[in-house]
């Protein structure tokens, strides 16, 4: 049991990293990775939303959606949007400092496809409650890791001598490609 959970966690965080091998959550990945600190904080906030979403989708799947499977997508999206809204209010009330630091990135988590992707993957794979939570934490850790790595590299390229037309998204995509190539090295981790 514990071993299965470790497999799910490492699988979601490293082997099938959401950003670098499923291409989920590319908008924040390319959009907000110019500073290491913001990237890391956004990663943590996203992880938290993933955790709450995983619990909610499991409840929905188990108690509601067996009666109406065609409502799956709509109900997931509504759950995610309201979770983000709720967390926004909660953080604003409990810790205004953190709220200030996260700023606009907090509401933008709603349109992050990594969250919806997580809900859909967890459903397709029939994960139970504990498995869903571990899967969400692993995916969040992987997301944070990918964001932090890219932003650390981008901070370096700011100072490098790059041709003017390669600056911006083109360069970031090629860096992401190389990172993704490196992450493929994790592929054989559990086969042996």
């Amino acid at each position: 049991m514990i071993q299965d959970l470790i497999t799910i966690f490492v699988g979601a965080a490293l082997i099938n990293n959401f950003v670098l091998s499923y291409f989920l959550g590319l908008c924040p990945f390319l959009g907000v990775t110019n500073k290491l600190q913001t990237a890391f904080r956004l990663g943590l906030a996203t992880t938290f939303v993933m955790f709450v979403t995983a619990v909610c989708t499991w409840l929905l799947n188990t108690y509601v959606l067996i009666h109406a499977p065609y409502l799956r997508l709509i109900s997931f999206i509504v759950v995610i949007a309201s979770t983000v809204q709720f967390i926004e209010l909660f953080i604003k009330k409990v810790s205004p400092v953190l709220f200030q630091a996260l700023g606009i990135f907090l509401p933008l988590i709603t349109t992050n496809c990594a969250i919806l992707g997580l809900a859909i993957f967890a459903t397709n794979r029939d994960y139970g409650l504990v498995e869903s939570i571990v899967f969400a934490l692993g995916a969040g850790a992987g997301f944070t890791l990918a964001l932090s790595l890219l932003s650390a590299i981008r901070e370096e390229t700011e100072l490098a001598d790059v041709p003017a037309m390669a600056r911006g998204t083109a360069l970031n995509l090629i860096i992401a490609g190389i990172l993704s190539l490196a992450f493929m090295g994790f592929a054989g981790l559990f086969s042996g």
């Binding site: 911006g168 360069l171 090629i174």
Partner: peptide
């Protein structure tokens, strides 16, 4: 594989730039 996607799109964007 995933890296191919990132790199191809990177080069296409380079071309458009």
């Amino acid at each position: 594989l995933p890296p191919g996607g990132f790199i191809t799109l990177g080069f296409l964007l380079l071309f458009f730039n």
